[in-house]
Design a protein around this nucleic acid. Structure first.
Length: 611
DNA sequence: GTAGGGTTAG
């Protein structure tokens, strides 16, 4: 023993040899060399011919040797817990140098965790904060956010700040944003300032989950800590500005960054492009594109796709298509998303033939449509009344293994409704229930609209009540159509009641259009109520439609209520509407035909002067 | 693999 080196404390004597039958020859060889250090080389050489007997005597091994053996055993033996202590009787597993090394060597985090639990079951190690820290950091390194969180909740130990910092990033990466923010707050309270990388990671995930308010709060904190930001920080801030539609600020920040000689990631440019597109500020769009090119950040497929997508959504489909074709001419190959975007845009623009052409071109180019592509095109087919083709493609989609979803059902239900096949749509609605597919507000709104459109008020009301029962909001279109059809069917009182109920339930003003009620009442000749409702609307800042005003004026003139007609006309003009010629004529005719209203002609002239 | 994209109502 005199020849042992000074790191004696890190060496353990292993006594029980039999347990190493499963180890590899390589390990045995290394054990030999350790034995040689111990001065028993002759004996070992002898035994090396009978491997099973090599360990029949005490050996001295380093911690890393032992740890390797233990780690191997944990990895290869299912029931290692039962034999570990008896096989390594002299090893003190609760010594941090040992378990640290075993955990370091154990790449499988679940096995590490089993080892940890085993250690915890040994005496005295249950509250060892060092062990907890090691295990916790292993879980964090393995990006096992939920496991790490459960671990903290169970053990109630306080990890070291640097481990918590990594834990924060791990939580963000796994989408546990609020949890991450909590831990970050805790760290801040303790006075520990996390690194720029962690701040940036937080900002990045907040931007990705659109939590703009928290972005600004964190940024304030960063400033308070005097953190020196970098281009990544600013990139996130620019995106945050885009998210809250404060594009001008984002653009300003971009210019500052560019002037300072930095170039943000392509995505930052793309987000600005997208935001400016949304605002129809195409001059700025091309300015950003030029910024990109100047910085050698060539606009990529994402950038162009965003432009095309926004152009299509902003009803500038022709411009979108022009760019799409231009890209192809310049040798870009549109990918599946690009084709989907374009097909969807064309379908929404009722250019089914254009969409169909692209559909086949895409397939010719070897791009296989996926769920998005199918839905976009199938929806277009429904809207264009190509029912059989829509159903055929739907089957094809299912055959390709895309399962039925809320969206696929909604597309069909809405498609059937658009084509008047409401009973079939109802059948699908029931089918969803049987198949356990979630119905959403789109499902209900499509059916409300579909049945109402057919004048089937009872069914329309049924789906409306179901929608409310399930906690969804009616869409403007479905609610308006329902009210309109109620009025048309003569149930104006019911429509008024429904409207008032909805208002009292606090529904969005946008949904609550009174126009159909005004028209319904006016059709029934309840003019004093029409005037009351109109007064209510005007007082509450609601804007009746131009066609509603015109219809009211017509009805009021016909009913000889010229004063009311002129009042309505005045309100209409006050709201900035321009008087249509036919209304103008019919009103003037009316007034001139009737001498008693001659003075009215004069007041009308006054009103018309403001045109 | 390396921050990102497209689908159903209105």
């Amino acid at each position: 023993m005199a020849r042992l080196p000074s790191f004696f404390s890190n060496l353990y004597i292993r006594q029980n040899p039999k347990s190493f039958q499963g180890t590899t020859p390589q390990i045995r060889t290394r054990n030999l060399s350790i034995d040689q250090i111990n001065g028993s080389s002759e004996e070992v050489l002898q035994h090396s011919r009978k491997p099973d007997e090599i360990f029949a005597q005490n050996q001295i091994m380093s911690v890393s040797e032992i740890a390797k053996e233990v780690a191997d055993r944990i990895r290869t033996r299912p029931r290692w817990e039962q034999t570990l202590l008896s096989d390594f009787p002299t090893v003190n597993f609760t010594d941090p140098t040992v378990y640290n090394e075993v955990l370091r060597l154990q790449s499988n985090v679940f096995l590490s965790f089993r080892f940890y639990l085993w250690l915890r079951s040994l005496n005295g190690s249950s509250t060892d904060p060092a062990l907890c820290n090691v295990m916790f950091s292993r879980l964090v390194q393995a990006n096992a956010a939920y496991a790490a969180k459960n671990f903290l909740d169970d053990t109630k130990f306080e990890p070291e700040p640097q481990h918590l910092e990594l834990y924060i990033r791990c939580l963000f990466e796994n989408g546990l944003i609020d949890e991450a923010l909590d831990v970050l707050d805790r760290l801040k309270l303790s006075g520990y300032c996390v690194s720029l990388e962690t701040w940036n990671s937080a900002l990045s995930h907040l931007v990705r989950t659109k939590r703009v308010d928290v972005v600004w709060k964190l940024y304030e904190d960063m400033m308070a800590y005097g953190v020196v930001t970098d281009i990544n920080t600013i990139s996130h801030l620019i995106q945050a500005f885009c998210l809250e539609n404060n594009v001008a600020k984002g653009y300003e920040l971009l210019q500052q960054v560019l002037e300072a000689g930095h170039a943000p990631h392509n995505i930052v440019f793309t987000k600005l492009v997208s935001a400016f597109c949304k605002n129809h500020d195409y001059g700025k769009v091309s300015a950003v594109l030029n910024n990109m090119i100047a910085k050698n950040c060539t606009p990529d497929i994402y950038t162009y796709q965003e432009v095309i997508n926004r152009l299509c959504k902003g009803r500038m489909i022709h411009e979108g298509l022009r760019i799409f074709n231009e890209l192809k001419n310049r040798g870009y190959f549109p990918d599946r998303v690009m084709y989907t975007t374009m097909i969807n845009g064309l379908c929404r623009n009722k250019d089914l033939e254009g969409a169909r052409k692209l559909w086949f071109e895409m397939i010719r180019n070897g791009i296989v449509p996926n769920e998005y592509t199918y839905i976009a095109f199938i929806d277009g087919l429904w809207r264009s009344g190509c029912i059989d083709e829509a159903e055929k493609l739907h089957k094809e989609m299912l055959n390709k293994g895309y399962g039925e979803t809320t969206i696929s059902f909604n597309t069909r239900i809405n498609g059937l409704c658009l084509n008047g096949k409401v009973e079939e749509a109802r059948g699908l609605f029931e089918e969803m229930n049987g198949k356990g597919i979630i119905r959403d507000s789109i499902t209900y709104n499509s059916l409300i609209k579909g049945f109402s459109q057919q004048g089937k008020i009872t069914e329309g009301m049924y789906f409306f009540n179901e929608l409310l029962k399930n906690g969804f909001q009616p869409s403007t279109a479905s609610f308006t159509l329902l009210i309109e059809k109620l009025c048309e069917a003569g149930h104006v009182k019911e429509a008024e009641t429904l409207w008032l109920d909805m208002r009292d339930m606090g529904f969005e003003p946008a949904v609550l259009s009174l126009d159909p009620i005004l028209l319904g009442l006016s059709k029934q000749g309840h003019f004093s109520e029409v005037m009351q409702w109109l007064g209510y609307m005007i007082n509450n800042g609601a804007r009746p439609k131009e066609t509603t005003f015109e219809e009211l004026i017509k009805c009021l003139s016909v009913a000889d209520r010229v004063d009311d007609a002129l009042y309505v006309l005045g309100s209409m003009l006050n709201m900035g509407f321009v008087l249509g010629e036919s209304i103008c004529h019919s009103l003037v005719d009316k007034l001139c035909r009737d001498n008693s209203h001659h003075h009215m002609g004069t007041s009308l002239e006054k009103i018309l002067e403001r045109r």
